[in-house]
Every structure is written in C-alpha cells, then in structure tokens.
Design a protein around this nucleic acid. Structure first.
Lengths: 229, 229
DNA sequence: CGCGGCTTTGATGTTCATCAAGTAAAGTGG
DNA sequence: CCACTTTACTTGATGAACATCAAAGCCGCG
C-alpha cells in the first residue's frame, strides 16, 4: 500500500464526491486529505478498526464483507467508484463492522471524519447531497439482498452475472474480479454449486467461460433465469 | 385512519426526534406538522406512493415490506417508536419502494419533506444527528438480514423470538404482533415450517405458546439455538 | 351459520449442502 | 528457475434440510 499526497485540482472524482462544496472549502479540505493506493487483494479496512476517516473510492473495485463467528465470510457489497462514496455506519459508530479489500488495483481518498462533520454542520447543501448518497447506497444494498434471497441458485448466478455486465463493466464480455468462492460468499451458496451452475450455463450456450473470463451469449435466456427461479 | 392536529408541547417523542432543534424551529415545524392514527392492520404507505412527507413513528408498531413480482411479500423490518424515525430512501427517491402497515394501533407524525430539507440545510447539528439515525437504522437492517440468512430455520425462529422479547417487548412473556405467515415473510421460510418449529420448541419446553402469546421458558437454550444453526 | 383466512400435522419430493477425490493454477522458497 | 506447497477449480455421489402438497380443525366476521 502506498500513500500519496493527492492533487485535487486534477482529480476527476472531486466534483462528483464534493460537488456541493465551494472552492474555498475544497481547498481547505485538500490540506487534510490523502490518497492511498492498494494492489488487488490488499486489505483496506479491517473489521473492528477505528473509524477515523471518511473514505471514498476513487478508482478500482472493492468488496465489503463481514466475518461471522465461525469465521465464514459474507460479502455484503461490491463497490465501484461511481456508485459508492462512503461506508455504512461511519456516522453512527466508532468502529467498522465490515472489512474492506481491494479486488482490483484501487485508489481511495481519505479525509478525517471530523472535517466532514464540520462541513455537514456548515454547508447544508453538502449535508443534503451526502445524505442522498448514503441513503441511496444503503437502500440499494438492502433491496439487492432482498431480491437475491428470493431466488433459487440458478437465478442468483444469472442475477450477479447480469449485475457485473450491466452495472460494473457495461459489457457482456468481461473478466470476473472475484473467485468462485467469493461469488458463493456474495450470493449465499456453496463454491461447488457456483461452479456447477456456471458449467450448466456454459453447456446450455447461455454463457461462455474461460477461467475468470465470461461472455454472455444468450442474454434473453439469462434475464429469464434471473427473474424467475 | 384519523387525522389530528398534534400538540408538540405535550409530545414525549418530540425531544427524541427533534432534539437538535431550537424552540423557535420546533414551533415553526409544528405549524406544518400533523398526526395520523391507524388501527392495527391499516395500510400507512403503499409501495409506489409519492414521497411527500417525512414520517416518524410516535407510538405503535409497523411492518415495512416489499411486494415481489409474483405478489409474494417480504417483510424488511419491524419498526418501533424508539429505534426508527424515518423510512429508507426518502432522501434519494421520489416514490416509496416499500409498503408500510400498522401491526398495532399506531400514531405517526408527518412533516412535509421540504421543511425537513430546509432544516437540514440550515441547522448542521440537526443534519448530523439525522444522518446518524438513518445510518444506524440502515446498518441495523443490513446486519440483521445478513445474520438471519446464515442460520438454519430453527436458528431463525429462535433469533426473532429473542428479538421480540429483547428489542420490542423487553419481556420474556409477550404477544406476537404478527401472524405465523408474516413471521415466515420476515425470516424467509414457509408458514408450515414456522408452525412446525414453534411446536417443536413448545414440545421441548423451550417456549410455551397459546395462540399469539409466547413465554420463553428456557432462554439459555433458545440463545444457543439462535447463535448456532 | 357459513365462508375465508389462519393454524396445525403428516407425507412426499426437490433443492441444495456436504463429502470425496482429482486436476489445474498460482504462489513460495531453495 | 524448478520443485514444492497451497489455493482454486471441477465433477460425481450421497444425504439432510427444507418446500410443497394435502387434509382437517379453528377462529373471527359478515
């Protein structure tokens, strides 16, 4: 993990994350802000760590997961730069309830949480826009988990394949950023069954797979399976 | 459903919900605020309704649920006056994604959402405290659903029995506010299995039941089942 | 008093997890 | 850089957990 001083002037994501701030506020923020770069696989936050910083994803891909008492891991969400700004519960808790790892080379920006709280107090528009983001994010996670749990195993696999294609890669031809085991942890099933169903889909010419590479061949069919079942 | 003009001066919950507001702000708020009273079973919000009001639960008990494409219903949360102030996604959406029904006689307070948004803009402490509440609430729902899904059916039943006893009624002797069918919708199983497992627990002297009345007889045992399994 | 929804129990079948065993891939140290 | 170890992937066989189906009693309500 490397640490860098960021250059807010040249940051494409600045406007997205801090769109409601004045340039004075942005400049003041920048002096308290730093970047961290993580390689694929590295741990960014460990469950139980103190929450000191407001963190947002600049580039890359991360998984947010919770470790259960029997050391099984449940992946709660996979976050991309655009759809995710902060982490659950940072405003209501002192310690992280989730761990976060990079599943692709990733850059995050950190700002002391106290600075963000001051901004919330002093800039109403910022407060409101942040609230909208947090609310939308939490809601998406809740609804997504709800939908997944209603489906049978084939439906769940179809659902997340479409989610990767549509929401993350915007392409029917992509490379899975996570292992079969992690897919299992994301959609509540066993690794064996993830593999089995991917093989079935391949046999039935719905998708093609080579290692982590996936091509969706019959989208209609996949959408059908994702919806029913 | 009755509609009443509320009297904020005598409202016990005012301080809890709007603790960060000055008395000037409270008074101003009161002129735009009204109460609604619902009997057990009545619908409070229907999925798809416009979101116009910021609503909080004053007294009673409500269920928040989502209707799936095949008209099955999934209960997302049961909310009590103290642990729940607002509804998911009201700051990020224009229409409700969930329906809400009273599962006990219930009083809610409504304030136009625009008023709340103005308060957020102008009172930083209010913004921050509201954000904490929303964040804590969303987080609780996510974590709770996560935990439930890891458990087997016996574990889930034990878990929600303890949840009713500890979080809602603060008593090991209580009356279920929902039917067996609704329990099934809350913890993702069939009505038959809810009944079967409650019968098992009764046979094993872990609980006693008469209709909707429940008494926890062997809490240690129930906690064990809730944790494992 | 009869209808519909809630509750209960048993029998049956399906879905999915577990176990086992082997191959491929990827990381590790000499 | 190659042997070695570990981790990921894959397939099949088995069994357990759970949903579904069926049938009957119960309760509240018009």
């Amino acid at each position: 993990m490397e640490k860098e001083v960021c250059n807010c002037e040249s940051c494409d994501y600045r406007m997205f994350v801090f769109e409601s701030l004045s340039s004075t506020e942005i400049n003041s923020l920048c002096s308290f802000k730093y970047e961290k770069v993580f390689k694929k696989g590295e741990l960014i936050v460990k469950e139980g760590d103190n929450i000191d910083d407001f963190i947002y994803l600049k580039t890359g891909l991360i998984k947010i997961y919770h470790t259960l008492y029997d050391s099984r891991e449940k992946i709660v969400n996979i976050a991309t730069p655009m759809d995710y700004v902060s982490f659950l519960s940072i405003f209501s808790d002192t310690h992280y309830k989730y761990s976060i790892s990079a599943i692709a080379d990733t850059t995050i920006c950190c700002v002391k949480l106290t600075i963000i709280k001051d901004l919330i107090k002093n800039n109403g528009n910022f407060a409101l826009s942040l609230m909208e983001r947090l609310s939308a994010n939490a809601d998406k996670i809740i609804l997504q988990n709800l939908c997944l749990n209603m489906k049978n195993l084939r439906g769940r696999i179809a659902y997340i394949l479409l989610l990767f294609a549509d929401n993350i890669y915007k392409n029917d031809n992509f490379e899975l950023p996570i292992s079969r085991k992690e897919i299992a942890q994301l959609i509540d099933m066993t690794t064996e069954n993830v593999i089995r169903i991917l093989s079935e889909f391949k046999r039935d010419k719905i998708i093609d797979t080579i290692g982590k590479k996936v091509v969706i061949l019959n989208r209609k069919n996949l959408e059908q399976i994702a919806k029913h079942g």
